[in-house]
Design a protein around this nucleic acid. Structure first.
Ligand SMILES: [Zn+2]
Ligand SMILES: [Zn+2]
Lengths: 247, 247
DNA sequence: GCACAAGTGC
DNA sequence: GCACTTGTGC
């Protein structure tokens, strides 16, 4: 079994968990809601006293000793109606809501990687919103097809066996953790299927705020061994790059 | 005290209640939800077997023996940014969400009208949707300013003293009932303030479906003594008639 | 895949 | 009050 040392990639103390941060939302659920005032859908205001950087999850990528890497599986079609597309140029994933997006990970490992995990955590990438917890909008949480699903409030779902949905009790951040499986014979890449359960535009949820996914490679003590960050846009037409849209 | 006889205006048996109808929604809440399929915001389908007319609330106006009538108070401003405007031409109220709309009612009554009530019930006016219960969208129900408000699921609110929010136990229809007060000295019109707590476009709620308000004059036995119907459109810019909108 | 609808930022 | 954004119907 291979086990390189824990590193943190920021030259600081290794995080014993990815959850060492706080969120400052508009309400108990850290969400922005429509019409806090009369008839105005408003975005959450930046908190008056900005939260210390340490309270915000790090999105600083670092391969770490395991040389943690990702790539995307082949996209279904290359037309404008594709369910998802990843731009290497911008490091941004465009996907429809609920589309299964195959993300492959690999690590440098001579033997069997045991007790390793992939954590997927969504964040708002803009500093004004990064302190807010990414949650689904009430409309989608309450939708019948999410009824009785325990993780229905989670924005990122992972279809892999063994995926575990966690909500940090102090911050309210929702993440999904899947065991890092051994790659199939003949490759070092392991595929994970992620889907995203709100649109970027969902009122009462993401509410048009730009997002990123933070993928961390962790050991069973939740020590971060490597980190990746991917920008994310969930929309009806991921095949249409925003700049191409006709006026 | 004046008390003309109960009439029904349809030449049929008087309704002993406005609630003698059923709703056939998409789910337990009679609502349309986003993405019943993958990534498609869909409207509710018309039920395969159309509901009998008797199960749908009547919106047939009739003044009745009391000569039940309405008019609108003076609108705040006549600019495009008005909070509400009523078109006599089309019998349609255009209003912003949460805007207080003053509706005046009058009845022919020589003495003191006692034990009379005004009921306001919202319906979807198109036959495809009339069987669905009008409720607020989950986003607005869950919004912090609606927390702890018992009638937060109601689409129509009435600000008058004595307003009572009722939900029919068999149909799930939500209505608000206010006592018919004596008009102030010098007029026969009594003013009621109504507000509408979702946009016409609210996903998971009205979801772009056209609506009407049914106002009924009732006695304390919920017998209908008169009925009025007003078409309704709740939107961000009620001052802009839909036809005027620039392309 | 286009044209429309309609809430939002500014 | 305009222009833009972006989900939706067709
Ligand atoms: Zn959503
Ligand atoms: Zn609403």
């Amino acid at each position: 079994m291979c086990k390189p040392g824990v590193s943190d990639g920021n030259g600081a103390i290794p995080e014993s968990t990815t959850n060492g941060f706080n969120s400052f939302g508009q309400d108990d659920h850290g969400r922005s809601y429509p019409d806090s005032g009369t008839n105005v859908y408003c975005r959450p205001q930046a908190s008056l006293s900005p939260s210390p950087m340490s309270l915000i999850p790090s999105s600083q990528p670092f391969p770490g000793s395991y040389n943690f890497q990702f790539e995307f599986g082949k996209q279904p079609k290359d037309t404008k109606s594709t369910a998802w597309t990843f731009s290497d140029m911008t490091n941004k994933l465009y996907a429809q809501k609920d589309a299964m997006c195959p993300v492959r990970f690999r690590i440098d490992c001579d033997g069997v990687a045991n007790g390793l995990y992939i954590r997927a955590l969504p964040i708002y990438s803009r500093p004004e919103h990064v302190q807010d917890v990414v949650k689904r909008c009430p409309n989608h949480i309450q939708a019948p097809e999410s009824a009785n699903i325990p993780h229905r409030e989670h924005f990122i779902w992972c279809e892999n066996q063994g995926a575990r949905y966690v909500t940090d009790s102090s911050t309210g951040r929702c993440a999904v953790i899947a065991p890092y499986d051994a790659p199939p014979a003949g490759t070092s890449w392991v595929t994970y299927l992620f889907s995203f359960k709100c649109l970027n535009s969902c009122v009462g949820g993401p509410n048009r705020r730009e997002m990123s996914i933070i993928y961390t490679l962790e050991n069973s003590n939740q020590e971060v061994l490597g980190r990746l960050s991917i920008d994310l846009r969930i929309c009806a037409c991921p095949g249409e790059r925003p700049e191409i849209r006709r006026r």
